[in-house]
Simulated assay, not measured.
Amino acid sequence: MKEFPLPVVAIGPGSQPEDEALQYMPLPSAMMTFALPVIDEADPALMAAACAVVERLRDEMQATPLDSATIPTVELQDMDTEVVRLLNQTMGEGEVSIAVRGSGQYRIQETVFASVWRVHEFATDGRLIGDTIMACAIPPMVAQWAQDGVSLDCKIPEKDAGLMNAPAVLTEIVGKAKAYKAGDGAHVINLTLLPMSPEDLECLTQTLGVGAVTILSRGYGNCRITSTKLPNVWWVQYFNSMDTLILNTIEVSEVPEVALASSEDYEDSIDRLGEWLQVMQAPESVD
């Protein structure tokens, strides 16, 4: 995760109470820290099966750089439910939670190992149809489904009573979105440092709309990232521990960098998986 050290004041969408659809992933007040697993007594056969999954993942990560086209993956859907329960217990929940809704429905949770993700796919009737462990900067379906239903057909409003900078900001956003190509650097518009009226912010909210992906990160401060109805355009909003908006930005990128695990995260998780594996294989040696 990337730190954003700029001190700012609260303004804009999110600074007032909201009735959001994704309340099942609340924003926490503290940063997660790594800790050794607390393991209940488990059947030796189940423990051996869980260890085999962790060891396979660790070995694939060692053989596969983070920027590789191949992603280390372990499918859990058809695995013994008790083994999956044990993996859930030992791998825990990390800093980033992701919901994808629309044509594809996913719940994605980073584990305590940064860059290692649990990916749950659901049918339209709510049935779990996919359960995967994946090691990568961010699961690829996030960028894929962020493009679901997007369009560059954006009507920019005329300057009207109460509107100050929204038309100009929208013109800039649409221009950058049209020009964006895979691999381009992010273009960030910091709304917090611009003179924006309530009407401006409401105009941006209504014009950009809400896309299929919501990312909640609890790394260095709480961060809510939401895709919009424009391709590669995201709201990125930072909150303090009181859930008050302190930084409000719009970013043009494939996925905002703050949501991505880094190469350092990936390498560190390989080491920690090895340590964790030792604990799982010899729990009696842990005080």
Results as ranks from 00 to 15, higher is better:
Ile11Ser: 12
Tyr220Ser: 12
Glu75Pro: 00
Pro17Cys: 05
Asp200His: 04
Val174Gly: 03
Gly162Gln: 06
Trp117Cys: 06
Pro26Trp: 08
Gln281His: 02
Ala166Asn: 07
Asp131His: 14
Gln16Glu: 14
Leu46Pro: 00
Phe113Ser: 03
Gly175Val: 02
Ala168Ile: 06
Gly211Thr: 08
Tyr238Ser: 08
Ala166Pro: 01
Gln278Leu: 11
Ala182Tyr: 06
Glu110Gln: 15
Ala45Val: 14
Ala49Trp: 01
Tyr238Lys: 09
Asp200Glu: 06
Met31Ser: 11
Leu163His: 05
Thr33Asn: 08
Pro157Asn: 10
Glu41Val: 10
Lys178Asn: 12
Thr90Glu: 05
Arg85Val: 01
Gly185His: 09
Asn88Thr: 05
Ala161Trp: 09
Pro13Leu: 11
Thr64Val: 02
Trp234Met: 04
Asp125Cys: 03
Lys178Gln: 15
Met25Thr: 10
Pro13His: 00
Gly104Leu: 12
Met47Asp: 01
Asp80Lys: 06
Ser263Tyr: 00
Ser103Cys: 07
Lys181Cys: 08
Gly211Ala: 12
Pro283Ala: 11
Ala168Cys: 01
Gln147Phe: 03
Val236Trp: 05
Tyr24His: 13
Pro72Asn: 09
Glu121Leu: 08
Leu87Pro: 09
Pro17Asn: 04
Gly14Ala: 06
Arg218Phe: 03
Ser263Ala: 15
Phe34Met: 13
Tyr266Gly: 03
Met91Asn: 07
Val112His: 02
Glu121Lys: 15
Phe34Gly: 00
Gly162Leu: 06
Asp125Leu: 07
Leu128Trp: 02
Pro65Asn: 09
Ser263Gln: 15
Pro256Val: 07
Glu172Phe: 04
Val84Glu: 02
Glu20Pro: 05
Ala49Val: 00
Ile129Arg: 12
Leu27Asp: 02
Lys176Ser: 12
Lys178Cys: 10
Val38Cys: 01
Ser269Asp: 05
Asn232Ala: 07
Met25Leu: 14
Asn222Asp: 04
Ala21Phe: 12
Pro5Trp: 05
Met280Pro: 03
Met79Asn: 04
